[in-house]
Each structure stands twice: as structure tokens, then as C-alpha cells.
Design a protein around this nucleic acid. Structure first.
Length: 328
DNA sequence: GGTAGACCTGGACGC
DNA sequence: GCGTCCAGGTCTACC
């Protein structure tokens, strides 16, 4: 079978809900922007048993089924894999009722329906993507993911087994991951040996604090990365505070002080949103980006998607009046 | 507990 | 076109 259909929540809108987090711009993900003739759709490669194939993901009508077309015929087992990956990536299991709870706490996003945050098909890919986003500007993250897919994954995102086998030197020289090489190999080894158990991290009954503590034990994962991985796991109480938080605090929220002080203030500013703090914070940032570059579903990976450099954002901030987003 | 410096890459800038 | 500076989060050593 080459086509499968996935049930989506009644309010699901592919363009809005997929183009909701920066990872949608990272390989092997590709968003094909809508034109007058065709609606936008997702294209990416997957690999099963080292066979790489391409899928195209569309949604003919808002709230309607997600339609997946594969470049190769899929067995029942492969179909189940692809369905599980896409349900995770698109957050298809997050219901309209769950989003309503978020909108009740922060009504600013009720009208647009914003709330779902795109993520990777697997926990492993989310962790590696987060590692590639640390201590590097956005175009560097874009490059690293592109090269990891091209050099190691044959077009798809490399799985733990491929990365365990990869030489650190190859990751550094050809994938340009720099000093992250050994950390990436070590993380892959931990996944393969089940030292990292994805089910435990994905289990809703595991407490946030236990997950955060376990994440901070991982190589290359500090407070920022841990908070980011927590949100990718659907746990929104922690903010991944970074230089972007400082820019947002100063230019949009009108805060003053040292970087450390502003990070603290930003954290305190969103604390009233409690378990939804990250989503309130994130959609403010996203609103700022969209004010500068247009709606996210019009962004091209190779043009707009590379504009998020520190200097570009600083320049954009100068053009933006403080108070773009309303306060909580 | 807090802080300084190293880690590596690529963009920005000056010449 | 080349050289230099700087941004970015984590980790380690040191006070």
C-alpha cells in the first residue's frame, strides 16, 4: 500500500500546526509552501531497515484526515511505523479539548487556534536536533541537520544504530557538528544500549522533575536543552531560556538589566501560566517572527528559514516596537 | 555556589 | 579574497 489516511483532531490545520516550531525547517523535514494551485504539504524521507523512502503529507480540508503518500509500497509493519512517527511529529493525539484548556489559560491564541507544536517523529531525533541547536547560530543548526541526513542517513534522519557506527571524525569534518561529535555518538550509544529508555521519557506518568533530572545527566544537555526537550515531550512548565529569551525580554517586553537578570525576569513573567508557560512564551516569539517574515507556512527552508541569525533578529527588533505581544 | 575560559563553526565586517 | 571578531549553550577547573 502506498497511501494511508490518519484521523486528525477536529480543529487540526496542517499549515498552522506543522509550521509551529523551528524544527519544521530542519532536514529531513521539508515544508512545500502553498501556491495558487496547490495547498502546502510536508515532504520528508524515512528509513526502515535501511531502505530510504519519501512520504508526502497533505490535509485536503481543515479538520479532515491527513493523507500520506509513500514513494514505496509499505508492509503492514512499515505502515504502523510511519503512522506512529507521523502521529508524534504532527501531534495528532493532542485533542481540541486539550487545546481548549491552554486557550482558557491564555486566550490570546484562541482566535488563531495556535497551540500544537511540531516535533520530530522520534524522541531520539528530537534530542539530537536539540544538541545541534546549542551554542550555534540557526544557519549552523540547519547545516548540521542537512549534512547528518545526507552523509549518515542517506536522505533520512540517521537512527541511533547508524550514528553509533559513524566515526566522530566524520561527524566533525563532513557534518560540521564540531565538538558535538563525541556527544552525539555517546547519545546514540545510550539509546542503542537502552541506557536511555524512550518509553520512560514519553510515559505521561513519569514526573516532570524526574525527566528533567535524567536529561541533565545526558552529555551535551544543560538547562536550556533540558527545558527544550521537556516541551518536545509535551511538558510545558519550563522555559528554555537562551539569548532569544533575552532579545524578547528587552525588545518586546521592555525589560532591562544584565542577560542573567533578564532571563530571570522572563521566567518570572511567564510563571503565571504554570504548566502552559512554554506555549505562552513560544507563541509570543513566533508572533514576532511572523511579524517580520510573514506567516510561517510561507517560509522556505533555504531562504526565509536561514534568516534567523542573531544580527538579523537584532535588526528586526530595532524595527519592532516594544509591546508587540500583550502581557499575561 | 558562582565564575572564567575553552569548545567549534560560520556569519559579519574591515581592509 | 583574506583575516579577524563574535555569537551561541555546555562543561570543567578553579576560587
Amino acid at each position: 500500500m502506498r497511501t494511508l489516511r490518519l484521523k486528525a483532531p477536529s480543529d487540526y490545520a496542517l499549515a498552522r500546526d506543522y509550521c509551529s516550531y523551528g524544527y519544521f525547517l530542519l532536514a529531513p523535514n521539508r515544508w512545500i509552501v502553498p501556491t495558487k494551485e496547490t495547498p502546502g504539504f510536508v515532504r520528508r524521507h524515512f528509513a526502515i531497515d535501511r531502505v530510504v523512502f519519501e512520504v508526502e503529507v497533505t490535509q485536503p480540508a481543515i479538520g479532515g484526515d491527513i493523507v500520506v503518500r509513500s514513494s514505496r509500497s509499505l508492509s503492514a509493519k512499515s505502515r504502523a511505523c510511519v503512522e506512529r512517527w507521523l502521529r508524534r511529529m504532527l501531534r495528532l493525539d493532542e485533542t481540541a479539548a486539550e487545546l481548549a484548556a491552554f486557550h482558557k489559560l491564555d486566550p490570546r491564541w484562541k482566535k488563531s487556534g495556535r497551540g500544537r507544536l511540531m516535533r520530530s517523529p522520534t524522541f531520539f531525533e528530537d534530542i539530537i536536533k536539540t544538541i545541534t541547536s546549542c551554542n550555534v547560530t540557526w544557519p549552523g543548526t540547519v547545516q548540521m541537520n542537512l549534512r547528518l541526513c545526507e552523509v549518515i542517513g542517506g536522505g533520512a534522519f540517521p537512527d541511533a544504530s547508524s550514528l553509533v557506527k559513524a566515526r566522530a571524525q566524520t561527524l566533525r569534518a563532513r557534518c560540521r557538528v564540531g565538538y558535538r561529535d563525541l556527544r552525539i555518538v555517546e547519545l546514540a550509544r545510550m539509546f542503542r544500549s537502552r541506557t536511555i529508555d524512550p518509553e520512560w521519557f514519553e510515559d505521561p506518568s513519569t514526573p516532570d522533575a524526574a525527566i528533567r533530572e535524567a536529561l541533565l545527566e545526558l552529555p551535551g544537555v544543560g538547562p536550556y536543552a533540558a527545558a527544550n526537550i521537556l516541551q518536545l515531550l509535551g511538558r510545558y512548565s519550563h522555559l528554555p531560556l537562551d539569548t532569544e529569551s533575552v532579545r524578547h525580554g528587552t525588545t518586546v517586553l521592555g525589560m532591562t538589566g544584565t542577560s542573567k537578570e533578564i532571563m530571570h525576569k522572563v521566567g518570572a513573567h511567564f510563571a503565571p501560566f504554570g504548566a502552559q508557560a512554554f506555549r505562552s512564551y513560544w507563541f509570543e516569539l513566533w508572533e514576532f517572527y511572523e511579524a517580520k517574515h510573514g506567516k510561517s507556512w510561507t517560509w522556505e527552508r533555504d531562504s526565509t528559514g536561514k534568516l534567523f541569525t542573531a544580527s538579523q533578529l537584532k535588526a528586526a527588533a530595532k524595527r519592532a516596537p516594544a509591546g508587540l505581544a500583550s502581557s499575561p
